[in-house]
Simulated scan of single mutants.
Amino acid sequence: MDETMLDGNAVAGLLGEVFAGDMTTAIGRCAQCGAREPMGSAHAFPGAGMVLRCAHCDHALVTIVRAEARAWIGFPGAVTMEVSVGPS
Rank of each mutant, 00 (worst) to 15 (best):
M1A: 06
M1G: 08
M1N: 05
D2F: 07
D2H: 12
M5V: 03
L6S: 09
L6M: 10
D7E: 11
D7V: 02
G8S: 12
G8K: 10
N9F: 07
A10R: 11
A10W: 08
V11P: 00
V11Q: 12
A12S: 11
G13M: 04
G13I: 04
G13H: 13
G13T: 12
L14R: 15
L15H: 13
V18P: 02
F19W: 15
F19T: 07
A20S: 15
A20V: 02
A20R: 13
G21H: 08
D22L: 09
D22Y: 04
M23L: 15
M23P: 00
M23C: 01
T24C: 05
T24Y: 04
T25V: 14
A26E: 00
G28Q: 01
G28R: 01
G28F: 00
G28V: 11
G28A: 14
C30R: 02
A31D: 06
Q32I: 05
C33S: 06
G34A: 04
G34V: 06
A35F: 01
R36E: 14
P38S: 08
M39F: 13
M39V: 06
M39K: 01
G40M: 00
G40H: 02
S41P: 00
H43L: 11
H43C: 03
H43Y: 13
A44N: 09
A44T: 10
F45I: 13
P46S: 09
P46V: 04
G47A: 10
A48V: 03
M50P: 00
M50I: 13
M50W: 12
V51M: 09
L52K: 01
L52F: 15
L52I: 01
L52A: 05
R53Y: 01
R53N: 08
R53D: 05
R53Q: 12
C54S: 00
C54V: 05
C54I: 02
A55S: 13
H56D: 04
H56Q: 12
C57M: 03
D58S: 12
D58Y: 03
A60K: 07
V62Q: 00
T63D: 02
I64N: 05
V65C: 02
R66K: 14
A67C: 13
E68N: 11
E68V: 10
A69K: 10
R70W: 09
R70F: 14
A71H: 02
A71C: 10
A71L: 07
W72H: 12
W72Q: 06
I73T: 10
G74V: 02
F75T: 05
F75W: 09
F75R: 01
P76Q: 07
P76H: 11
A78G: 02
A78H: 00
A78P: 01
V79Y: 08
T80N: 08
T80E: 15
T80F: 07
M81T: 01
E82C: 05
E82N: 07
V83W: 00
V83T: 06
V83G: 00
S84L: 14
V85M: 13
V85H: 09
V85G: 04
G86C: 10
G86A: 15
G86T: 11
G86Y: 01
G86L: 12
P87V: 13
S88P: 04
